[in-house]
Computed example of a mutant assay.
Amino acid sequence: MKPCWFENDDIPINILSRLPAKTLHRLKYVSEEWLNLISNRSFITSQLRKTEPVSGFFFQEVFQWTDDESIESISYIPVDVDNVNVWRNVFDFLPEYIVIMSLNNGLLCCRSCFPSSHPRIYVCNPLNKQWTSLQWPNISQTSNVALAFNPFQNPVDVSTRFKLVAVSDIENGEDEYCFVFDIYSSETGLWRRSKECCVCNHNLTKNKGVLVNGILYWLTDGYQILMFDPENEFSLLVTAPLPETEFSGIPEMCIGEWQGEVCYVIISEDGLQLWVLEDHFASQWELRISISLENLEKENSNVLYKISEKVASRLCKDTPAWMDPLSFKDGVLLIRVSANVYLYRFDTRSMKKLCDVSTLGPTSMFYPIVVPYTMSLVPLD
């Protein structure tokens, strides 16, 4: 790479590093000097210290009753524009159709669509369209693979290092199941099975591996959250802040991250609540925000109507929830209300319609894969 004409001048570097990744990606085309600077790993490391806002959400349908066949289409729903248009073909730079697995710090983990004779796992950066791949390991195709990439614990000034954690559900005796963890390191290029296992008779659902402070969390369908620390290799089941017996109807929830804290968003007859995990060993939560359904409707009367009776009317899990929190990141909640998808901001307590559910596909009502996306310049070459 050619030297940059101002690489020894701290002023332009200090100014440019404050800009968002989306703007910097466009500025690379101004000149060769700007390209060299913005592509420099030291500059990228400096720019990563800036908090990036959520730029959108990736949305992918799944077939409700089978894991043997994947839906190829993926939608990108931007949130930082006035007139929202759902984007297609975001991943056309990859050599095949993929299924989203997890995303953090601007990097996405995905896999080949099943069925596939030679399935692969991809780690890519959708902004700069760089990617790397590896063969699918010798684990079940139903395993959930999460990306553990933290540029603050593993700086990208020399290389981009990451780990993958594959969670598999295996039988551990009569009527008992447990989760086991296979770990891949980009430094060694090898998979190995951790000695750690976690007894659990529930399934993973929604939010594909949320990474918070280097620890991975998965929501289960049993009012518990699976936690795994890939560095120290220990796991734990964190009890949800509210037990199932607390509700008369069926609540809907998702997990996410906000300012380095694990968050649990739940919608029930008690309203919209945001809980923050204070101690995962003790399953101790703090109720940070609570908004009654009546106030939620009053504050957003242009889009909500009689939500109390509609939320309370759902008594069977086989029917889609009327209000479903799909994904959460940094105070921004993607939520489906009936046949529409909205963005809810906790700071302003306001809702904005993004699109109709029908634009996302015919099976988009039933437990889609939804991950929040924040852009980054992190290279994979």
Rank of each mutant, 00 (worst) to 15 (best):
L16N: 01
S17P: 09
P20M: 08
P20I: 11
K28M: 15
Y29R: 06
Y29S: 11
E32H: 12
W34V: 11
L35E: 13
L35D: 11
N36Y: 05
L37M: 11
L37P: 04
I38Y: 09
S39G: 09
R41W: 06
F43P: 02
I44G: 00
L48V: 08
R49E: 00
T51A: 09
T51Y: 04
E52V: 12
P53G: 08
F58C: 04
F59E: 06
D68A: 07
E69P: 01
S70P: 02
I74D: 11
I74F: 14
Y76C: 04
D80T: 02
N83L: 11
V84R: 01
V84F: 03
V86M: 06
V90T: 08
I98G: 12
I98Y: 12
I100L: 15
M101N: 03
N105T: 15
L107D: 04
L108W: 09
L108H: 02
C109T: 04
C109N: 00
R111Q: 07
H118E: 01
P119E: 04
R120K: 14
Y122T: 12
C124V: 07
N125M: 04
N125F: 01
L127Q: 09
L127Y: 11
N128Q: 03
Q130F: 14
Q130M: 13
W136D: 07
P137Q: 05
I139L: 07
S140I: 07
Q141V: 10
Q141F: 08
T142H: 09
S143V: 02
S143K: 01
N144E: 11
N144A: 10
A146Q: 05
L147R: 01
A148S: 04
A148I: 03
A148M: 00
F152M: 04
Q153V: 10
D157Y: 14
D157Q: 07
V158M: 10
R161M: 06
R161K: 06
F162M: 06
